[in-house]
């Protein structure tokens, strides 16, 4: 009976168990990484630089032009900073998911299934790399810089000010949901892992630029099909006092939390289906 109650308790606190497992496994990977200190330092610096160079491209662009698609440098930097930070956080937390195909192929996923802790947490924390913090830091720095530049240009209110952290948080959750979705697909198609990159890395690149420079069908696609526009485009346009893209209602700027929630639900269902399929086919 006591056993029953205990497991019931464990099931009731599913999210807590996921976080606890994640922390345990991630801590082990951090310790492992620290055994190769020189290499770790090098990867942390390069991770920061990789994303910095990414921004250098935008700096170089603005060295040649005054605006891009009618947006000023500060406004593009704002877009860059919000999506960069959101994507950085998601990548830090779940970046290892794209390697899951390898675990499936070499059979080591079975070892995870033997443990009394949630599978998703184990896979997500697998090869946890603290160096990915470099991307978050870089995104945050650009975001801060853009806010300094925009301090007089935007009519700030409590509402718009609050939208910035909310945007980053919801954006991170949306990116994470896309990553889980991509990982779920790997239960069926291990070799297709790269497709998820087009939506994560590709999405991040897309969202760094103003929606006005893209074909309107592409913009509609990331609003209504793969809702990446809710990561930063729609709320950021509102903060910047610009109209939403054609065909998108103005209240959509506030819908990011709801969209994030729906994305999580879809990703959760896909993950469960993937695990079920893996356990019935064993491949």
């Amino acid at each position: 009976m006591a056993e029953r109650l205990r497991t019931a308790g464990a099931h009731g606190s599913g999210a807590v168990e996921v976080l606890r497992t994640y922390r345990l496994v991630a801590a082990m990977w951090i310790r492992s990484t620290m055994t190769y200190r020189a290499s770790f330092a090098l990867t942390l610096v390069t991770s920061f630089c990789v994303t910095f160079f990414d921004f250098v491209v935008i700096l170089l662009m603005f060295g040649q032009v005054q605006g891009l698609g009618g947006f000023s440098f500060a406004e593009v930097a704002f877009l860059y900073g919000t999506t960069g930070t959101a994507f950085g956080l998601a990548d830090l937390a779940l970046g290892s998911l794209q390697r899951m195909g390898r675990r499936i192929r070499d059979g080591s996923l079975d070892v995870f299934l033997l443990r009394p802790v949630p599978l998703l947490a184990q896979v997500a924390a697998d090869k946890f790399a603290l160096r990915r913090l470099g991307r978050v830091l870089q995104g945050l720095m650009v975001l801060m810089w853009s806010l300094v530049l925009l301090r007089h240009e935007v009519a700030w209110s409590w509402g718009t000010a609050l939208m910035v952290p909310a945007m980053v948080a919801c954006g991170a959750v949306i990116f994470m949901a896309v990553m889980v979705l991509g990982a779920s697909a790997q239960f069926w198609l291990q070799d297709a892992a790269e497709v998820a990159n087009s939506f994560t890395y590709g999405g991040n690149t897309l969202l760094q630029y103003p929606p006005t420079i893209f074909a309107q069908d592409l913009v509609k696609g990331v609003v209504f099909v793969v809702p990446l526009a809710f990561v930063n485009w729609l709320p950021a346009l509102y903060v910047l006092g610009r109209p939403a893209p054609a065909g998108v209602p103005s209240w959509a700027a506030f819908a990011s939390p709801l969209v994030a929630l729906v994305c999580c639900a879809v990703a959760g269902l896909a993950w469960r289906a993937g695990v079920r399929s893996y356990r019935s086919t064993g491949s």
Binding site: E194, V195, L206, Y209
Partner: peptide, 21 residues
């Protein structure tokens, strides 16, 4: 095929930024 898809997506995103530039 997955790589092809990804390259094509990135191709489109970069093309639009270059067009703007």
């Amino acid at each position: 095929l997955a790589g092809l898809f990804t390259n094509t997506v990135f191709g489109f995103v970069l093309s639009y930024t270059y067009i703007a530039l």
